[in-house]
Design a protein around this nucleic acid. Structure first.
Lengths: 166, 166
DNA sequence: CGTTTGGTTCGGTTTGTTCCGAACTAAACT
DNA sequence: AGTTTAGTTCGGAACAAACCGAACCAAACG
């Protein structure tokens, strides 16, 4: 039974790992570390434990753990009389992730605006209506980005609210 | 003046290129091809032209052009008595892109549901309330994904509407 | 003081990506 | 038939990413 839950966990680690690999642009093992730490929760995950369950070398785990801490994605707590570090996801990594998404959408919006401006400038030099750039897509997309941004801001507020409820 | 517009265009090609490189997971030159084709518009961009302005070899351009066509991101038209191919972005690449986003959100939602189910299963075996997984984030996130999906569906409908207006 | 524990650091191998040049092809022009 | 045009294909060079093992280190333990 414990074995069953464990294999289920490792299956999820792989699945979530693959997702994080592309979503957060992490190296395979780094993504699996994140996934494992997320699915272990507040109990915390140790260096040794990860070397074993993720079947990676100490050097690989060490390097990635340090890197993930630099990126503020992980942090750790300790126990008195125990030299081990217990890794957990950074408490405000969720908020950080959301802010990243907001920034990303803003960047996309800025790019669309720049492209639109460029195309409008070109259009002025074109007499034939048929040859002109079509701008409807940029307009629609910009409206969409506004909508999406509003949803994210909403999520962000929900999260902050829940944080204070705890 | 034409030179000015041209340098402005190439600056935008680089900027959009960098963006597409990560957003669409394309090789540098492939991303710049996409950017260039997008910023050239319906006039169409030729093989030779891209070899020159993107400063890449014929083989590189050829390989990437074929790859981008396989991915349905590009297509071309021809002119009678002219062997050149005039590349433009695939007419329904925008819709395709939107469908990709929808699919992506669905996948994220599925993953969150799976993680939530796993954590709930674990929680049942834990007596200490303090030790239990916190599920509020998954709930909030799932609600957010629903919102975001709705916005995208909205954009999609706008686009389809505009298509028929033309 | 020697050993164990919990890691870190470095050099190197493997693997993968991205691009290029040179040789090639197929159609059209002369 | 030969050349030009518009590309394709193949082998490999150059670089980068990801991981590993071995040697190392610092703190605690015995």
């Amino acid at each position: 039974m414990t074995k069953d839950i464990c294999s289920k966990k490792m299956a999820l680690v792989e699945k979530l790992g693959v997702h994080l690999e592309s979503r957060e642009k992490l190296a395979p093992v780094a993504a699996r570390i994140m996934a494992y730490v997320i699915l272990t929760g507040k109990r915390g995950s140790t260096f040794e434990e990860m070397v074993e369950v993720l079947c990676a070398s100490k050097s690989t785990i060490s390097t990635h753990l340090n890197h993930l801490q630099d990126l503020k994605k992980l942090e750790y707590f300790t126990k008195t009389g125990d030299r081990k570090k217990y890794f957990i996801i950074n408490k405000d990594s969720v908020l950080h992730h959301i802010n990243e998404m907001i920034k990303e959408w803003e960047e996309v919006a800025a790019l669309h605006k720049e492209m639109k401006a460029y195309k409008e400038a070109i259009n002025e030099h074109i007499t034939d209506e048929e040859e002109k750039f079509d701008l409807t897509f940029h307009n629609d997309y910009l409206r969409f980005v506004e909508d999406a941004s509003a949803s994210i801001e909403n999520l962000k507020e929900n999260l902050i609210k829940n944080k204070f409820n705890l």
